[in-house]
């Protein structure tokens, strides 16, 4: 975090609202934004909510952390070379 972003976060904390009237809907938009599937209007809406709503902020950070965990920390199984060889030889037998 850069110095200016943490200090501005401190300043914003005072004015951010504690309750989100439309949180279920906000979370849908936040997920679409993180998935790269939100329209420019929807992105703008999310950006505004992140600036002035604490529950939306927490929700965004949580969804982002979960998405990153799935992207980067889910165990990957190396494909066995025997499977690759087997498929190739079966194809050439056809």
């Amino acid at each position: 975090m850069t110095p200016e972003s943490s200090s501005s976060a401190e300043a914003e904390k005072v004015v951010k609202k504690e309750h989100c009237e439309n949180h279920a809907n906000c979370m849908k938009l936040i997920q679409m934004a993180l998935d790269g599937e939100a329209s420019p209007e929807e992105l703008e809406h999310v950006r505004q909510n992140l600036g002035n709503c604490l529950p939306c902020n927490r929700g965004y950070n949580l969804e982002k952390a979960i998405k990153q965990a799935l992207q980067l920390r889910v165990e990957q199984k190396a494909v066995p070379q025997s499977l690759v060889d087997c498929i190739k030889s079966k194809i050439h037998e056809l």
Partner: peptide, 15 residues
Amino acid sequence: LRAETVQELLGDEVT
């Protein structure tokens, strides 16, 4: 659930 908690979880736990 907090974002920080998710970041602490191991790959196995996420899997």
